[in-house]
C-alpha cells in the first residue's frame, strides 16, 4: 500500500470538508478515509453530498474492503471505522469512544498501527476532544500529523486538543490543507 490519508471532523466539519475535499485532484495517489461526527440514527448521505462536488471518487466505507487511491471513504453512521494491519477497512459496533461512534481516535489509532510512517492524519474543526489521542498515536508511529489552525477553525476545541497532545503537528488554515496534502503525496509514494 502506498499510504493513506485519514481525516477527522466534528462541529463545522462538513463545511470544512467542502473546502478541503473538492480541492484534491482526481488522481490523488492515496485513499482518504474520513470520520465525521453526525447523529447516529440515520444514514447520513455524506458520500452523496460530496460525490457531486469532488474530483475524487466518493464512497461509504465497506467492511474488509481495500481502500483505493483516488477515492474518499466516509465512515457509515453509527459504526466505528478501523484500518486492519493489511490496510483493509473494518467496521465495528463497539461502544462509542469519546461519546462518538464513529470515533476519530478509533480510526487514527488503528490506521497509525497499520500504516506507521505512511500515514497522514488531519484533525479539523470540532467541539470535543475526539482525535487528539489518535493524532498523538500517528505522530508516535512516525506518521504525519496536521491540524486545522484553531485560530481560524470554525470551532477550535478539537484542533486545539490535538495540538496539546501533538505539539509538533503542522498547523494550517483550511484552504491550505489540500495543497499541502498534494505536495506531500509524491515524496510518500513508495512502490
Amino acid at each position: 500500500m502506498t499510504g493513506m490519508v485519514v481525516i477527522g471532523a466534528s462541529a463545522g466539519g462538513v463545511q470544512a470538508l467542502l473546502t478541503l475535499l473538492p480541492a484534491l485532484p482526481a488522481d490523488f495517489p492515496r485513499p482518504v478515509l474520513i470520520v465525521v461526527h453526525v447523529p447516529p440514527d440515520h444514514d447520513h448521505g455524506l458520500a452523496g453530498l460530496f460525490e457531486a462536488r469532488c474530483a475524487m471518487q466518493v464512497r461509504e466505507a465497506e467492511d474488509k474492503q481495500l481502500p483505493e487511491p483516488g477515492t474518499i471513504y466516509f465512515a457509515p453512521a453509527n459504526y466505528h471505522l478501523l484500518v486492519e494491519p493489511d490496510g483493509s477497512m473494518a467496521l465495528s459496533a463497539d461502544d462509542p469512544v469519546n461519546h462518538s461512534r464513529p470515533s476519530i481516535d478509533v480510526l487514527l489509532e488503528s490506521a497509525a498501527d497499520a500504516l506507521r510512517r505512511r500515514l497522514i492524519a488531519v484533525l479539523l474543526t470540532g467541539a470535543n476532544n475526539d482525535g487528539a489521542e489518535g493524532l498523538r498515536a500517528v505522530a508516535r508511529a512516525g506518521g504525519t500529523a496536521i491540524v486545522e489552525d484553531p485560530e481560524t477553525a470554525r470551532v477550535p476545541t478539537m484542533p486545539a486538543a490535538g495540538l496539546a497532545l501533538c505539539p509538533d503537528a503542522t498547523r494550517l488554515a483550511i484552504d491550505a490543507i489540500a495543497p499541502h496534502l498534494v505536495r506531500l503525496a509524491p515524496s510518500h509514494v513508495r512502490p
Binding site: 478501523l82 486492519e84 494491519p85 463497539d94 488503528s110
Partner: peptide
C-alpha cells in the same frame, strides 16, 4: 477476528 478491533478490546 479482525485484528484492529480485538486489539482495542
Amino acid at each position: 477476528y479482525a485484528r484492529a478491533s480485538i486489539k482495542r478490546r
